[in-house]
Structures are given as structure tokens and as C-alpha cells.
Amino acid sequence: MDGGKSVTTAMQAGKLPVERRGVISRRLSGILEPYLYVSPALILIIAVMLMPLVLGLSYAFRDIRILNPFSGGFVGTAHFQTLITDDAFLGALVNTAWWTFGSLLFQFTLGLILALLLNRDFLGRRLVQALVFLPWAVPTFLSGLNWAWMFNPVVGPLPHWFTALGLMETPFNILSDPDLAMWGPIVANIWFGIPFFAITLLAALQSIPKELYEAAAIDGATTRQQFISITLPFLAPTIAITLMLRTIWIANFADLIVVMTNGGPADSTQIVASYIFTQAFRRLDFGYASAIAAVLLVLLLAYALGVIALRRAMTHADS
């Protein structure tokens, strides 16, 4: 009896501090807990992305040339004034639009078709899915080099195939033709980017309830009508967000161009992102490069906000 009693008191005594600790932590932890979870990411992003961004933006108003010891002073908006009259920059802007939307159109269309094909059950689907997603895992500069190699008539098969198809009179390297050069990196980019759209769209497709198609079929909808009235509306949110994200990524994505053409020939493949690279690391003019980057950032922000506003307007019109 006695022993049992002392055990219970000991247990109660042991229990008390636990409850005390609870008292202090509950309110506070209720408020602080989410921030605690977010803090590592937030610290990293602020330290490695936001602070450098602010620093980088400040460079846009300074004269920073690596090899010039007298540089470093404030130049106000001089860089931006130069920018307005910089033909190379204006050409790069046009090329960026061309590069971005050319890549995006094919990546998206082919990615959607691939997702639709993979959404059917067929023999060997798992293997096929693994294989067609593979290009996404290939390091971009390696695929750039490889594609440059394949476009070269000496060591690559592509020009010979184009000739056989009657697209070319004699095999030549499109990467050295100012009118066609942009197609080189675009094709490489399409190859690299299809899996991204296919993966996200396939995931969205698989989340559409099967009953909807059954109901539509019973209502007499043809396959095409089902696609338009069920598939597309369900995919719309995914399409909107992935298109926006990819637009921004591709516009910023200079690796393939730097590796394959380095902006040439005659600046015909120079996009803004690769122009920044050239200014910063070939001419070592960080001030001017930062000014260009700032303009690009503003343009992309404006684009993103425009898309979001458009989407909001459309969803409001729906409801």
C-alpha cells in the first residue's frame, strides 16, 4: 500500500514540470512554430539571393570594371542612358523574345502531346516514361556541346539528314548562318525542356477524375469534345503556372546559347541573359552588366504581374 502511494506521488512530482513547460511553450510555440520551420530557407534566400540582388542593383548605378583600379564611383543613371542607345542590347531584347517564345511553344505543345500519350495505359509505358524524361537529367552545357556537335556537318548527322529531306541544298552548319543560328539552341532547348512540361502535365492529367470522362461519354461527347470540355479546363491552372515559370526561366537561361554559339554569329543569337554574361565576364564591366540585369528583372516582373493579373481577371469573369 505504502509503496504504491509513494510511486503515485513520485509520478505526480515528475509530471508537474512537464506541464509547466507546456504552459510556457504552448502560446509562444503556437505563434513561433511556423516561423521556426521557415527560418532556414528564409535566411539562405536572404543571404545568398536577396542581399546579392540588392548589391547587384547598386552596381547598376556605379562604374565597376574589374581591370580598372580607378573605377567604383557612382555614375547615376549613366549606364541606363547608354543602354537605351545600345543597339546590341535592343537586338538582344528582340532575340530574347524570339528565343523564349520559340522554345516555349514547342516545349509546351510537344510536352502536352507526350503527357497525353503517356496518360494511356500501354505495353512498356513505365520504361517509355523513364526514357523520354531522361533529357531533363542531362547537364545543360553537355547537351549544348552535343547538339553543337550534331549540327556540325563534319561530325554530326543532322545537316546530312536535312539535305536528304531537301531542306538544304548542301550540308552546312546552321549555327554559323546568322538567319538560322537561333534554331540550334532552340532545338536543344526543346529537347531539354519537353520532360518538364510532360511531367507536370501528366501529373495534372492523372488527377482528373475518370468519372468525368465516363459521364461525358454517356452524354455523347466525342473524344475531341471531351478534350476541350474536360481536359483543357482541368489542365488550365497547371498550364498557366508552368508556362509563366518556364517563360521566366527560359528568358534567363543563357547556358545553351553561351555553349553553342556564344551569341554569334554577328550577335544573331545574343539574348539579354547571354549579353549580361558577355559584358560581365568577357568585358569585365560589371556596372553595365548589372544595369542590363536590372532592366531584365523589371521586364520579367512586369510580365509575371501581367500574367497574374490576366489570370485573375479571367477567373473572376468565370465566377
Binding site: 545568398v48 540582388l53 565597376i64 560581365a280 531584365l296 528583372l297
Partner: peptide, 16 residues
């Protein structure tokens, strides 16, 4: 952060 032209961050990151 997904909109940053990352090339632009190289010099500042180096400095930090």
C-alpha cells in the same frame, strides 16, 4: 527569386 538573372548575382555573391 525565380526571376533573377543569376549571372548578375555572381559578382555580389563572390563579394559576400
Amino acid at each position: 527569386t525565380q526571376m533573377f538573372p543569376l549571372v548578375m548575382l555572381i559578382a555580389p555573391i563572390f563579394k559576400i
